[in-house]
């Protein structure tokens, strides 16, 4: 059961504001999802290797070659706020 407290906790971790009405709705929806996972848990997977990806591919790697992206200036100008070549953000405290 995902109660209101858990919804608040998850909301906090995700840094999103959730109002009372949403808390109730999310609590119901998340509970259903968890219940479904619990249903899946009934299967005996003791001898099944966890599957981390479905492509059955391996080792898509690149060689260590560096080049400058053409997008750096665009990325900076997309930012809500910049100062020179820096992104400018509200003051952060640890």
């Amino acid at each position: 059961m995902v109660d209101k407290k858990v919804v608040e906790y998850v909301g906090n971790l995700a840094k999103i504001a959730i109002n009372e009405e949403e808390k109730l709705a999310f609590s119901e929806q998340l509970s259903k999802i968890i219940a479904y996972i619990d249903k899946l848990k009934e299967l005996d997977t003791a001898n099944v290797e966890p599957m981390r990806e479905v492509n059955q591919l391996e080792d898509a790697v690149r060689q260590d070659e560096a080049f400058l992206s053409k997008d750096s200036e665009d990325i900076l100008s997309n930012a809500p706020s910049r100062e020179g070549d820096f992104f400018r953000i509200p003051k952060v405290i640890d």
Binding site: A66, F67, L68, S69, S72, I75, G84, D85, F87
Partner: peptide, 16 residues
């Protein structure tokens, strides 16, 4: 593929 160069000007070695 962005360079790891330490002394580059800020936000030049960045990509999507």
């Amino acid at each position: 593929s962005c360079p790891t160069e330490f002394q580059s000007p800020p936000n030049t070695n960045i990509c999507p």
